[in-house]
Simulated assay, not measured.
Amino acid sequence: MAEELLRLGLHDLHVELGGKMVPFAGYEMAVQYPAGVMKEHLHTRAAAGLFDVSHMGQVILRPKAGMEALCLGFEALMPVDVLGVAAGRQRYGLFTNETGGILDDLMFANRGDHLFVVVNAACKHADVAHMRAHLADVAELEFIQDRALLALQGPLAEAALARIEPAVAAMRFMDVGMFGDLWVSRSGYTGEDGYEISLPMAQAEGFARRLMDMPEVLPIGLGARDSLRLEAGLCLYGHDIDTTTSPVEAGLVWAIQKARKAGGAREGGFPGAAHILKELAEGPSRRRVGLRPDGRAPMREGTALFAGDAPAGQITSGGFGPSVNAPIAMGYVPVAQAKTGTALEGDVRAKRLPVTVADMPFNPTTYKR
């Protein structure tokens, strides 16, 4: 018997807006609205798109014996400098396992007297259990259940949100702020400037309607959310990264700060450190790369790649990029085939089609630095 899908707090609003509801990460969510994926994608790039990401996990970690102890304890779970994140700032993080694989990727913010963590929907219960097991001595953990999480993304996101809360206009990329009941970060997963807003569920529908009453704001579904992040070259957990991929293979070395690398102030000390530090020093055997299929037909996840007759990895995410007006993909290939411009072939319905290793992002990012 199929597992019953959960519903978001704004489910009725999505249905009212004409959302086409599909299963995703255990929830019933809108894959698109009447405008369609292509228009929703392009509208986000040109104006502002509103995404309901309330399926994500929201967690507060409060210190038992000061913020330094909490930050060091949280840092012990991942190869990321937590101690160096200033109050009012946010950082991308990765929980790793003992073999150097990725348990989940996440965002965490230092809000002065506590950490606020946002984790992926499909991993959130495992992540909460992981944090409870390993942070019991340094943190009190609150798994938040009564707040929505909305993302407002695009070049006009600032103008729209500033009509409701003017102070957000002064925020920079990865800044966080608390404005009454609104917990805001200037971040997102589209490659565009924008915000993520956590707010009480009881206020979420009125807040969302107020934004959508603005001419520049359109509701955006899962389809455009995926094509936007793919154009930005961003990983989707469970597809481009998982417990079998290391941060080095995945091209996430930028997320491992100097303090945690060999010779750093707090070198190692995280799960899988021996494997990850070795890969940092010697290089991995494979790498995540951008891929450009020839022609107009996308190459989807699972497509096998070849260099001549030799297997050369596979695609982990693929589709059509509306902003670049061409098919795009990403996947893992041996280091020997990872150089930009390398010609490969993808096996599409038992037919070999040309695909070329390409730089990412496919579409330039527009974060407000």
Results as ranks from 00 to 15, higher is better:
69 A>P: 03
160 A>T: 02
212 M>Q: 09
341 G>C: 06
122 A>N: 10
191 G>I: 04
178 M>L: 15
61 L>R: 06
56 M>T: 02
150 L>V: 06
228 L>V: 01
188 G>W: 09
167 A>G: 03
64 K>M: 04
341 G>P: 05
363 N>F: 13
337 Q>H: 15
232 A>Y: 07
238 G>I: 08
54 S>V: 01
298 P>D: 01
265 A>Q: 14
324 V>Y: 06
66 G>S: 02
176 V>Q: 11
196 E>L: 04
245 T>M: 11
117 V>A: 08
275 H>V: 15
221 G>K: 02
363 N>R: 14
270 F>K: 07
146 D>M: 11
105 D>A: 00
146 D>A: 13
161 L>G: 03
133 A>N: 12
84 G>C: 07
329 A>D: 05
79 P>F: 09
274 A>M: 02
4 E>T: 14
23 P>I: 05
320 F>K: 07
231 E>I: 04
298 P>S: 01
38 M>G: 03
233 G>H: 10
184 V>T: 01
135 L>G: 04
75 E>Q: 14
242 D>S: 15
3 E>M: 13
284 P>V: 03
135 L>P: 02
267 E>P: 04
11 H>D: 12
249 E>I: 08
113 D>N: 09
243 T>D: 12
68 E>W: 14
149 L>N: 10
133 A>M: 09
248 V>P: 04
73 G>I: 03
285 S>A: 15
166 P>R: 10
361 P>L: 02
350 A>P: 06
34 P>R: 07
226 D>S: 14
359 D>V: 05
188 G>N: 10
258 K>L: 11
68 E>S: 13
157 A>W: 07
102 I>W: 03
56 M>C: 04
292 R>V: 11
40 E>P: 00
51 F>S: 02
99 T>R: 15
24 F>A: 00
76 A>G: 14
178 M>T: 14
324 V>Q: 15
57 G>V: 02
72 L>T: 13
309 D>M: 02
32 Q>R: 14
12 D>E: 14
134 H>P: 02
108 F>C: 00
320 F>M: 08
25 A>P: 07
347 D>M: 15
181 D>G: 09
168 V>Y: 00
239 H>E: 15
18 G>L: 10
178 M>H: 12
80 V>A: 10
64 K>W: 06
244 T>R: 11
105 D>S: 01
80 V>R: 15
307 A>P: 00
66 G>P: 08
360 M>K: 11
131 M>I: 04
19 G>K: 08
137 D>Q: 15
210 R>N: 12
42 L>C: 02
21 M>G: 07
34 P>E: 03
225 R>K: 14
263 G>K: 10
73 G>L: 05
331 G>T: 12
248 V>H: 06
195 Y>W: 03
214 M>W: 10
191 G>D: 01
80 V>P: 08
70 L>I: 09
331 G>P: 12
331 G>R: 13
298 P>M: 00
181 D>C: 08
297 A>R: 15
29 M>L: 12
222 L>C: 01
114 H>I: 00
94 L>Q: 11
136 A>D: 13
217 V>M: 04
64 K>T: 01
258 K>Y: 09
15 V>T: 10
5 L>P: 03
39 K>P: 05
8 L>Y: 10
111 R>C: 12
155 P>R: 11
132 R>K: 14
112 G>H: 06
80 V>Y: 11
299 M>N: 04
258 K>P: 13
62 R>L: 10
49 G>P: 03
305 L>C: 03
